[in-house]
């Protein structure tokens, strides 16, 4: 099951999307993939947290942006589905509050002024409506929902290289674990979920995979590792090499590998 992680790391199980379990390696996530947080930093500007405000960071990961929000004087609770992520978050930000929870059914005792989420909602793919309903319940009237997630077409070159390679090796087409909605689709869900959409942006964000010497193959291991569980051990290496070959024309530059990220960013209000 865990070819790339050692046993202790195998315990790190995240369940944003059942029935697929996705394994995370919090250390690799922070060191090699700090861009998930770094590129999200301006999203905190859109949130514009005020001193004393209560903010819930949904899918907080290792808590980098949770700490950023707290530094602006807000009271923040970070929730993530991964115990490993929360452990890291607590060790790196000891003064802040974190809990393990599922975006599909989290509940808070008192309503929040804002719910914030960066690069996490696309992992909560089982039932996006349930997630939006939970966010609404967690907000006071007038409270805001500010988030960024992968949008339609996110990682299209990466995932199409994966699907082709899987097919070439005679493997069953993997069910990708993400939810990458179009702007229209997500706006409709927000409105049907009782939100007023104030801002909605949809943009390309080509992102260097700086610390990914093996390019697309490394990306697959980190972000879609669960899909390798069903692949015979001897096939994994050649399969990932093929993913690299297929993805290289679109994503490999002289300066290194780029991921073809597409983002959806929004600010919505609970009336």
């Amino acid at each position: 099951m865990c070819r790339y992680l050692n046993d202790s790391e195998c315990e790190l199980i995240l369940r944003y999307e059942t029935p697929n379990l996705t394994r995370w390696n919090a250390r690799a996530y922070d060191s090699s993939f700090g861009y998930v947080s770094a590129h999200g930093a301006p999203l905190v500007e859109l949130l514009d947290p005020q001193p004393g405000e209560r903010v819930l960071d949904l899918g907080c990961g290792t808590g980098v942006l949770t700490a950023d929000i707290a530094a602006r004087g807000a009271e923040v609770l970070g929730i993530d589905g991964s115990h490993s992520m929360i452990e890291t978050a607590i060790s790196q930000h000891p003064g802040l509050d974190f809990a393990v929870g599922d975006g599909h059914d989290f509940t808070v005792a008192q309503p929040y002024d804002a719910v914030f989420s960066n690069a996490a909602l696309h992992w909560m793919s089982r039932d996006p409506e349930a997630v939006i309903a939970c966010v609404r319940m967690a907000l006071r009237p007038g409270g805001r929902f500010v988030a960024e997630l992968g949008g339609a077409g996110n990682c299209a070159a990466l995932t199409s290289a994966m699907l082709t390679a899987w097919r070439e090796y005679g493997l069953r087409e993997p069910e990708l674990p993400w939810y990458f909605p179009s702007p229209a689709e997500y706006a409709r869900r927000l409105e049907q979920g009782g939100f007023t959409v104030r801002i909605l942006e949809y943009f390309d964000r080509p992102t260097p995979l700086d610390d990914c010497p093996n390019g697309a193959a490394d990306w697959v291991r980190l972000f879609a590792g669960s899909l390798l569980d069903g692949v015979p051990l001897a096939t994994v290496e050649p399969l990932l090499l093929r993913v690299n070959e297929l993805a290289a024309p679109a994503l490999r530059r002289e300066s290194g590998w780029m991921a073809d990220y597409v983002r959806l960013r929004f600010a919505a209000v609970r009336p």
Partner: peptide, 11 residues
């Protein structure tokens, strides 16, 4: 509660 972290998962 594992390692002082509340695990609020119904499962």
């Amino acid at each position: 509660v594992r390692d002082d972290i509340p695990v609020l998962l119904v499962d």
